[in-house]
Structure formats: structure tokens, C-alpha cells
């Protein structure tokens, strides 16, 4: 069976937590959640995971700690956490918007609100997941800065955006001015595809590596253990 695009996305999300050590992985969305659990079961066994509510749990669901919202916010400010949030809009310096589209005073579309994006981005590593890479999401300027990008962070002590994962590839900010760079392409995607779906100028290295292949064990875990009902195919097809 060939590896699906959704499976490459799971791998690319999992890799966000590589080398993080004993921190809380906070994935938002199905594919980031599969990625975090895959990382925990393979190369990042010290990661902490929640049940999505108030408990820290092992991959089999066994509770190992209590994490109600008030303590979750302390995890954020304590910095031992790496969150992967969604983004309704994201720009070339990593500013992210989930609040509203249009003029904030009277929005064209009210979305979630800033939620915890400001506290997340100033306190712990914050990555992003975009299931449908398009010009409407990868915009020149976001309508409301919720997650703080490199050009707004003013060198804040704990600000870091390790990566942005989309259905087309992986992006980071490893450029001199911390603008977005294409870090890897999912197999089957071209640089041209990414450029067409992005409103701003991306840095594209001469040689863009492919997103890594899943191991046989990765595929077994994703297909048989973590997501046997193949819900991932509904998020990315």
C-alpha cells in the first residue's frame, strides 16, 4: 500500500517534537494529535500527552497526571511545552490569526478569538498545522495577529516557531530575517504547487528535500493502532 498524503502529514507533524525531551506535546487537530502520539510511541518516549481534557495520559489512556486548564496555562508559562496550533491565516514571518477575518471592529467573519495564541507564542515553542494550503491561509498580512511572528516578537526571550506543516510540505524560519522557508516537500508536490498556493514570496533552497518516508513501524502504528478508522483521510485527502 502506498503512503498517503495524510500519512506524510502525520510524519511531518510528529517530527516537530523530535528532540524536545520531557515536555508537554499539545496538538490541536487530528493529524497533529496522531503525529504527537506517533512521536511518543517511537522516537520521543518522554513526551507528555493529555486526553484532550484534564488528564495527562500514557498512549494507552492510563492517567499519569492531572492537568486542568489552570495548570495547563502554568505549563505554558513554565515553557515545558510545544504546541501545534491551527491557523486561519499565517504570514511570511509566522504571524497567525484565528480570531476573525476582516476589520476586527466589525468582522466579515468572526472566528474563534485569540484563544491562547498570544501566551503560547511568547512562552513556549509554537508550531502550526494547515490542512489545506492556499492563498487564503498563507497571506501577505494577517487581519489580526493572534500568534506572534518573528517581525512582531521583538526578540522575546522564549519566542520560537519551529515549523509550519501543511498538506503540501514543511516550512520553517531558518533564514537571516526569519522569513518563511520551504524546508521539505511531501512526495508528489512540486515547488511550483507551493508557490501557487502561497500569497507571499517564500525562500526556496536550491535543493528541497522530500518529507521523510515513514518506517514500517510508523505505518503499522498509524494504520493499526492510532487511526484504524482512517479519520486522517477526512482531514487531508
Amino acid at each position: 500500500m502506498t503512503v498517503t498524503r495524510a500519512e506524510y502529514c502525520v510524519i511531518a507533524c510528529a517530527e516537530a517534537w523530535r528532540g524536545d525531551g520531557e515536555v508537554l506535546a499539545s496538538p490541536m487537530g487530528l493529524i497533529p494529535a496522531l503525529g504527537a502520539r506517533l512521536a511518543r510511541l517511537t522516537f520521543a518516549p518522554d513526551l507528555l500527552l493529555t486526553d484532550g481534557e484534564a488528564m495527562l495520559v500514557r498512549p494507552d489512556g492510563t492517567p499519569e497526571g492531572w492537568l486542568p486548564y489552570r495548570r495547563h496555562l502554568e505549563f505554558v508559562t513554565g515553557g515545558r511545552r510545544h504546541v501545534m496550533m491551527g491557523a486561519s491565516q499565517i504570514d511570511r514571518f509566522g504571524n497567525q490569526n484565528i480570531s476573525c477575518v476582516g476589520d476586527w471592529a466589525r468582522p466579515k467573519r468572526q472566528l474563534l478569538g485569540v484563544r491562547g495564541a498570544p501566551v503560547n507564542t511568547l512562552n513556549n515553542p509554537t508550531s502550526y498545522w494547515v490542512p489545506r494550503h492556499s492563498r487564503r491561509v498563507f497571506v501577505e498580512t494577517v487581519d489580526m495577529v493572534c500568534g506572534v511572528g518573528y517581525d512582531h516578537a521583538g526578540g522575546a526571550r522564549f519566542h520560537r516557531i519551529p515549523r509550519v506543516v501543511s498538506d503540501l510540505g514543511v516550512f520553517d524560519f531558518a533564514t537571516p530575517d526569519h522569513s518563511m522557508r520551504l524546508a521539505s516537500l511531501h512526495p508528489g508536490v512540486t515547488v511550483e504547487d507551493v508557490r501557487e498556493a502561497t500569497s507571499f514570496a517564500l525562500t526556496v533552497p536550491d535543493d528541497v528535500p522530500p518529507t521523510r518516508e515513514p518506517t514500517a513501524e510508523d505505518l503499522r502504528l498509524v494504520r493499526e493502532v492510532l487511526d484504524p478508522a482512517n479519520a486522517r483521510a477526512r482531514e487531508v485527502s
Binding site: P118, V119, V145, F158
Partner: peptide
């Protein structure tokens, strides 16, 4: 004092 809000449009609005 809180380490949140700076750099974001929470300050603008």
C-alpha cells in the same frame, strides 16, 4: 504582570 499579549494585536484592539 503577564508574558502574553506583547507583539500581538491584543495590544492594538
Amino acid at each position: 504582570p503577564v508574558r502574553a499579549g506583547l507583539g500581538s494585536d491584543v495590544m492594538r484592539v
